[in-house]
Design a protein around this nucleic acid. Structure first.
Lengths: 111, 111
DNA sequence: TCAATTGTTCGATTATGATAGAACATTCAA
DNA sequence: TTGAATGTTCTATCATAATCGAACAATTGA
């Protein structure tokens, strides 16, 4: 069982967080996972192939936004809300609220 | 006198804003301008040449983050705080506060 | 008019990243 | 043990963008 790298709370950088969330697909993933608490990669319908989803999941994990828990062949993603709130108070809330009210969506998904 | 394009409030997109602010130099520019109300491009010391600053200023303008006022040969930049607050309440505050407490800085500047 | 100031634009280079597809790894159930 | 399910990794492609330097444009003052 391979150990996945997760940055320490103190090593979460604002630029990386903003960059990671500036991609519409990643932002959609984060919003969805945030609402449901925990989700697997393949569980969320997005208009890209699984290798691309895997790449996005890695970007989010290395930015310190999501935690990945392995169970069997599945990876359960959850948002590192406590770490993010401690490091950048109010940031995630503001971004997700902005996303929800913006009406921005991703192409070619029925959602 | 050339007219500069500024997106309407409704055309400011979250992804573009987050992307624009994910660059450390642009974030530093925004933070500096925010504090002083209005600044010219060349007025802010950053470790890149002026053509690059110009490029960053354009990115911020086209994302809807800054307004550019022309006066003589100078361009005065200001943050579109009202538009941003109306479109994404609390977002800019959270990002700038995060930036200020993060201690993240840009390379090779005395500042 | 001439030169200095301020900034933009253009061309080139270089790096990064989003994407897809194929091959591979791991786990679990039949 | 075999096969299905779930993801990762590798390779390749394509687009975007950060950067610099040089040329250009506009304004202002001498």
């Amino acid at each position: 069982m391979k150990i996945l790298f997760h940055p320490d709370r103190a090593d979460i950088h604002l630029s990386s967080v903003l960059y990671a969330l500036s991609d519409p697909i990643r932002l959609y993933l984060v919003d969805t996972i945030y609402k449901s608490g925990e989700r697997t990669c393949g569980d969320i319908e997005v208009p890209v192939v699984k290798s691309t989803v895997s790449h996005h999941a890695r970007t989010l994990r290395e930015a310190g936004i999501v935690h990945v828990r392995m169970q069997g062949t599945q990876r359960f993603l959850s948002i590192r809300t406590e770490d993010l709130e401690a490091r950048f108070p109010g940031l995630l809330d503001a971004i997700l609220k902005a996303h929800q009210t913006s009406g921005e969506t991703i192409p070619f998904t029925t959602d």
